[in-house]
Computed example of a mutant assay.
Amino acid sequence: MMHVYRQLLAAWEAGNEVILASVVQTCGSTYRKVGAEMIVDRSGNCWGQLSGGCLEQDIVERCLQLLHTEKPFQLVEYLRYSTLDPFADDQSGCNGDMRILLTRTDWLQPYRSELERALEQELAISHLIVLDGPAELVGVRAFFIDGCPIHTDRGSEWFIQSLPASGLSGLSTDEKTGAVYYRQQVPPIRKLLLAGAGNDTIPVVRFATAIGYQVHLCDFRSAYLEPNRFAAADVVLHQIGRNRNDWDGLLARFSPHTPFVAMSHHLEYDRLSVEAALQRGLRYIGVLGNKSRLRLFAADILPEQAERIHCPVGLPIGAETPEEIALSIVSQVLSFQNRPGRRQGDGSEAEQTIQRQTNPAERGQPVSQRKGTILG
C-alpha cells in the first residue's frame, strides 16, 4: 500500500481529477479516526480506506458527484452512535458516528513538485480549508510546508497569517472571526531500513510494504539487489560497501525516527551498520540473532545506546519460518512507532464529539440509505 499522497501524485501525473476524503470528526466506535484519508479519481478508483467497507461505495459516489459541481467541498455525516436504535437496521458497520470531508485537489496540483520534495525529505506538510463562518472565508484554502505558507487563496492572507502555523489534524474555530476550519496534517512516508537483502528479507519487504512502508534495502552483494527479487511497489535498493563511510553517508539522509534492522547474516557488515545507526541516533535498531551474537561485535555499547537495540529483533510469538520471523519483525517495528503519543488516532487522544445534525426521519435507516448532512 503506497502512501496516499504518493498515490495522489501518481493520479495527477496520469491526468486524473481526484477528490480527497478525510475523517474530520468521530464519536463512538469507528474503524478509522480523525486524519485518516482516502482518494477517489474520476473513474471511481479509490486508494485508502475509511471504514471496514460499509461506507466506501457511498463515499465514491459522493466524490464523483462533487467532481461534476463547482463546489470546493462537501461535508457528509454517517450517524449510528447517535441514532435512537442502532440495532434497527441491517446491523452492518461500527456503532459510531463519522463526519467525512470531501475536497477537490485541483488547487494543489500546481504545487505537486513541492509536495513530492517535502514527502521525500520528510518535511512537515499540512493544508486547511474553511468550512463555516463568514461568507467571505468559507472555502478559503491554504497549503503549508514546514509551517511556511506555500499557497493561500487570494485575499485571505490576513486570515491565514492569524492562525497557528501547525497543529494536529482536526476541526478548529478561530475565535476572532468565528470561522470553522479543518487542518489536515499529512503523515510522513514511513520508511524501513534493512541491512541485508537475503532471501529472508523478501517476506519482510512484502509485509512492510503492504502496510505502507517504503523499504530501503542495503547490501554489498550486487546479486542480492536484483529488483525482480522484490515484487513490491515501494522498494529502494542501495549497494552499500563494507565500510563505515558508506553507511554514514546513507544514514545521514534518513530521520532518526526511521526504524533500522540488521539482518545481513554477515558479522562485519552488521557491526558496521549497527555502529553507524547508533552514531546517527536512530531510535529503533533491530538485530537478527541472539544476544551472544550481538556481543561479538557490540561489546562496547553504552547502556543508553543498548536501550535502542532490540535483539533478538521481533515480537516473541514463537516464530520459526521466514514468514513468521518477518511478521514478528514488522509487528515490533509497527508497535514501536505506534506507541501512545507517537501517532494521531492511536487511542491516546480524546475523540471529538459530533454535533447532532441528523434528520430524525433518517434515524434507524441503513447507512447506505441515508442522505447524510452536506454542509459544503
Rank of each mutant, 00 (worst) to 15 (best):
H238D: 04
E268R: 06
T258P: 12
D246F: 10
D248L: 15
P259S: 05
A252M: 12
F230D: 02
R253S: 10
E268T: 03
T258N: 10
F230M: 04
A232E: 10
T258Y: 07
N243V: 01
F254Q: 06
D234A: 12
R229E: 08
N245F: 15
H265Y: 05
D270A: 06
R244Y: 15
D270I: 00
R242I: 11
R244C: 12
I240V: 13
V235T: 09
D270Y: 02
V236L: 12
F254A: 11
D234E: 13
V236E: 09
H266P: 07
W247R: 06
W247I: 04
D234K: 11
A231F: 11
T258W: 05
G249I: 08
M263H: 08
S255N: 08
W247A: 06
E226A: 15
V236H: 11
P256K: 08
M263E: 08
W247G: 04
S255W: 03
A232Y: 05
A252S: 12
F260C: 01
N228K: 13
T258C: 14
W247C: 06
D234R: 09
A231P: 09
L251Y: 01
A232N: 10
D270M: 05
L225T: 01
M263I: 13
S264R: 00
R271G: 03
I240M: 03
G249F: 06
A231K: 13
P259V: 00
V261P: 10
Y269N: 00
S264T: 02
A232P: 06
S264P: 05
T258F: 08
R253A: 12
R253G: 10
D248A: 14
R271L: 02
D248H: 15
I240K: 00
L250W: 02
V236T: 12
R244V: 12
F230T: 04
A252L: 11
P256C: 09
